[in-house]
Design a protein around this nucleic acid. Structure first.
Length: 162
DNA sequence: GCCAACGTTGGC
DNA sequence: GCCAACGTTGGC
């Protein structure tokens, strides 16, 4: 089975890539996703070891901050059952959880943040979901070709210079 | 803070 | 099942 690639958005004021690096085991559960399309990608598409592009939205500038990997199989988002939690969903049945998530582990920071503007100016990324107008989805699939281009732009995953 | 682009909700 | 109203996302 081949590895898949994803892009996941986070507002750095809420949870940044640096926060993920600082987290225990550099890992966190990706809670709070309340969009069915995004959930379906996590529930149906993700496997342990998949590559994750960590994107900072609502930032100045917005862009790619680092790279992570899927660190668990999909499982129910515990916050949906916590009445005290802002992500509580009274319509979710514990017998049949509505919201599913995965754990994410930080792997490597971008050498420098790759601004959204640079991504949009890169012809090889014309078809990338993130670059499409009105793209709001917080979890998106990324092709292997896009993954390589983005990592090169971020200065990671390439052979070290002498 | 504005607003375009979506997604969701609920009346009918 | 339609669709208007409303809420959210997220770049600018």
């Amino acid at each position: 089975m081949s590895r898949n690639y994803w892009l996941m958005k986070s507002e750095p004021d809420v949870f940044s890539f640096e926060d993920l690096v600082q987290a225990p085991n550099r890992t966190t559960l990706w809670d709070g996703v309340r969009n069915y399309q995004a959930r379906n990608f996590m529930r149906d598409g993700m496997s342990v070891g998949d590559g994750v592009v960590f994107y900072h939205s609502n930032a100045k500038p917005p862009g790619i901050a680092g790279f992570a990997e899927v660190a668990s199989e999909p499982y129910p988002d515990p916050t949906q059952f916590d009445t005290e939690h802002k992500y509580f969903d009274p319509k979710s049945d514990p017998e049949k959880p509505r919201w599913i998530l995965v754990d994410i582990r930080a792997v490597e920071a971008a050498r420098a943040l790759v601004p959204l503007q640079d991504l949009k100016e890169e012809p090889a990324l014309d078809d990338m979901a993130l670059c499409q107008k009105g793209s709001r989805l917080s979890v998106q699939p990324v092709s292997e070709a896009e993954w390589r281009v983005v990592r090169a732009m971020a200065g990671v995953g390439v052979a070290k210079k002498a």
